[in-house]
Design a protein around this nucleic acid. Structure first.
Lengths: 223, 223
DNA sequence: CGCCTATTTGAGCGTCGTCAATCCAGGTGG
DNA sequence: CCACCTGGATTGACGACGCTCAAATAGGCG
């Protein structure tokens, strides 16, 4: 199968390319670098110069800052359709966090000049990028709110509710250790908080599997 | 003095309009609504639909979420040149926080259609907006990092270092209560943390005035 | 089947939040 | 010009939530 066509076909399904004309998409697909990452592979590290805007087509990536003793604080989980590295627009900018693949990834990389040309040719693409990063700011705000206003059990309940559900079932996509870090908790505290929800009869947990018994009570807990 | 010309002249001095052609600036100035806020006045409240992208020309605004018992958690201090409300691009979006003037403000408001037209006419403006919001994401990341990795005294030291200094002098622009909220601390804890820095001989504080005696030690404290 | 890592569980402690009282500064009016 | 007054800031005492250290258990992958 033609690699280039494969990627071109993938593009229209991502919201970040909504409303971007076919011809512009083709141009994007032609100039953008294509990258693949294996699970665990590092895309960039804190301190390196920002050279590209990345668009994640496939897979999951964590953005994290090292915290000594082999610890880290996870700032964000990146999902397909997410764009990151807009700070390529800021002069002499360096990454403030490290990006590492949690699952095998495919992504596009746009250099600063390609990004500028792309927005020049397709202002709609510029607006899509703006909407995307705007969404990320809002997510950060909600995280800040949760971190400041809610306790450990409430934050865990909130996280469970946000997971995609089929019926009343859900799964932890990432390691519990990683989720704990994302929520600003120690793994031990995360474990105890989950146990609390189980003890209260709101959920049951088996490994990465979650069954939600009382969604309303979970909602009430975070409100 | 002509109000419109006054604002038009103000625009080129803000980084967010760098590289945006004179003619586009004039167009922006002609279509954008102009707003003034008195100290304490509310621009929008949590839950209201997002109708405009705002660009702060002058003054300071706080973005905060109410937290019950008349409390609030301040998410961000907005300064001249900051743009906010890019989420006007997201469908059916509502404000997740309240905006209130901390000082008298002047600002521009762009409707969704005006924003789209502006980026259409001047892709450079789109890139500037992207850079601006990108900067805000990074600030959020650094806040998350501080909140997770540093204790109260370290966060206060970090905040002091970030204030604009003349010689070894600086000032708290906002009420300590507000700064505490921004740092994710109670006013009492903020006060005690400042006292700690004073006791250690790193700074002295009189009301809103700060004198920095040992900047290196402050830096070392947050590293 | 066995190793290695992730997760869970337990015990103890420290930081920060809560509640309450006091202190202080800036603004107002006599 | 000074006394008052009001809201912010400070200080103290105490408790709780989440962190740290340590050990046991479970789970995944070769």
């Amino acid at each position: 199968m033609d690699m280039q066509l494969e990627h071109t076909d993938l593009l229209p399904s991502l919201p970040v390319f909504d409303g971007v004309g076919r011809v512009h998409l083709a141009w994007l697909a032609s100039v953008a670098r294509r990258l693949s990452l294996k699970r665990g592979e590092t895309l960039f590290e804190k301190g390196q110069p920002v050279q590209f805007l990345y668009i994640l087509l496939n897979g999951h990536i964590k953005l994290a800052v090292p915290a000594g003793h082999g610890q880290e604080k996870i700032l964000e989980f990146l999902k397909p359709g997410d764009a990151f590295g807009e700070s390529v627009l800021l002069p002499d900018h360096r990454w403030i966090a490290t990006a590492q693949a949690l699952f095998p990834c495919k992504l596009l990389a746009l250099s600063l000049s390609d990004l500028a040309t792309a927005v020049e040719r397709s202002p709609a693409f510029g607006l899509r990028l703006l909407a995307n990063v705007s969404q990320r700011v809002e997510t950060q705000f909600m995280d800040q709110e949760s971190g400041a206003l809610r306790n450990a059990v409430q934050r865990v309940a909130e996280y469970v509710l946000r997971q995609p559900k089929v019926g009343n079932q859900a799964r932890f996509l990432y390691h519990k250790r990683a989720i704990a870090s994302r929520l600003g908790l120690q793994p031990e505290t995360f474990s105890r908080s989950l146990k609390q929800l189980v003890t209260d009869g709101l959920i049951t947990v088996q490994g990465a599997r979650i069954v939600i018994h009382d969604e309303d009570a979970l909602q009430a807990m975070v409100a």
